[in-house]
């Protein structure tokens, strides 16, 4: 009996030692790493948090962060269970809106497991759903368009005519008109996220109708916008989610700016909240005008101005004084959004 107790004590001790450092489980979307967009950013955020945790506990990043790249949506639920059933992970982060429904019906099976989903809401008691105020980045892009455009006309290429993309159109239009009240914004919808050819045709149509800047909010489809912009020297394009002058370097000469969706910061913050003990489930809105005050911004020009306005890899040839003027205007817009003097109206 005493022997048994001793064994139990040793096992218990070993268990507490093993539980020493926090662990992060990261489940990416089907695109996987290397997309220079959503998945990569999600990974950077988790890696950033893991580095901090690893340093604090004197372990390696690999000990802290385990990640998987599902190849099919069919794999998602298996990965939640695979991570959650061990009980080892302090937080399981799921990148991308595809996760919403499978997570919604799997999460309740593991009530003590904390989950985070990025970009849609999964309605369960132990899930934090991260959403972004997309209209804010769109507004900043509109400001750039208003400052740069010679014709006073710009276009938005949307992937689909859905509320999400309407927020981009509304934000962009209001941003451009905040600079130039007479500015005119046209919009076209591709109907698909992966049709750059049609994206190119629709972009050419808008350029020919007088737009000299087009804002792409169509996923892979607005790669066609960049191609169309190359047709003529006075055409510009604006990218989305990451600095596309970096992710699509062959068109960095026409991509003057990119609206940023800081998935990396959101993932980092959600993980650190768990470590600090301040994590809570529910919907968490990331954006300038929210409590978190992060998660959005713009990449423009060659200098970092603030954490919202970042240096871009763009190689567009704009005169220095123009860049400076735009940066000043952007800063003014950000301050306006922060103090509430600018309110972006969306449907």
């Amino acid at each position: 009996m005493r022997k048994l107790l001793l064994v139990l004590a040793v096992v218990a001790l070993a268990a507490t030692v093993a539980v020493g450092h926090p662990k992060i489980g990261l489940i990416l979307a089907t695109g996987g790493l290397g997309d220079r967009s959503f998945n990569d950013m999600g990974y950077w955020g988790a890696e950033m948090a893991a580095e901090e945790i690893a340093e604090q506990y004197g372990v390696s990043v690999d000990d802290v962060l385990d990640y998987v790249e599902p190849r099919e949506i069919a794999d998602y639920e298996g990965y939640y269970r695979e991570f959650a059933r061990t009980g080892e992970y302090d937080i399981i982060v799921c990148i991308g809106f595809d996760h919403a429904e499978p997570l919604e019906f799997t999460a309740p099976d593991y009530p003590d497991q904390k989950f985070v989903i990025v970009d849609d809401v999964a309605d369960a008691d132990n899930v934090a759903s991260v959403l972004f105020n997309d209209q804010e980045a769109a507004f900043l892009c509109g400001v750039v368009a208003g400052m740069i455009s010679d014709t006073g006309k710009a276009g938005v290429l949307g992937g689909m005519d859905i509320p999400l993309i309407r927020r981009f159109v509304d934000g962009f239009t209001q941003g451009m008109q905040w600079v130039d009240a007479d500015a005119e914004v046209m919009s076209r919808f591709v109907g698909a996220w992966n049709d750059p050819t049609l994206g190119m045709e629709l972009s050419r149509e808008m350029y020919r109708a007088g737009a000299d800047i087009i804002y792409g909010a169509a996923g892979g489809s607005h790669l066609g916008t960049f191609v169309a912009a190359e047709d003529s020297a006075d055409r510009w394009a604006i990218g989305t989610d990451v600095d596309q002058a970096w992710s699509v370097p062959e068109h960095s000469d026409v991509i003057i700016a990119s609206g940023l969706k800081r998935v990396d910061l959101a993932v980092y913050e959600e993980i650190m909240k768990v470590i600090d003990g301040t994590w809570e489930p529910g919907v968490i809105q990331y954006g300038l005008a929210t409590e978190t005050r992060t998660g959005h911004g713009i990449a423009f020009g060659p200098w970092d101005v603030s954490e919202y306005i970042q240096a871009s890899y763009s190689t567009a040839s704009l005169p220095n004084d123009v860049v400076r003027d735009v940066l000043l205007k952007l800063d003014e817009a950000v301050q306006g959004i922060l103090d509430g003097t600018i309110e972006i109206e969306v449907e």
């Binding site: 809106f97 595809d98 919403a100 849609d120 689909m160 859905i162 999400l164």
Partner: peptide, 14 residues
């Protein structure tokens, strides 16, 4: 898919 007749109304194609 979004825009199709049986789209569930959320983000994913479901």
């Amino acid at each position: 898919s979004p825009g199709g007749p049986f789209h569930g109304g959320r983000m994913a194609a479901r």
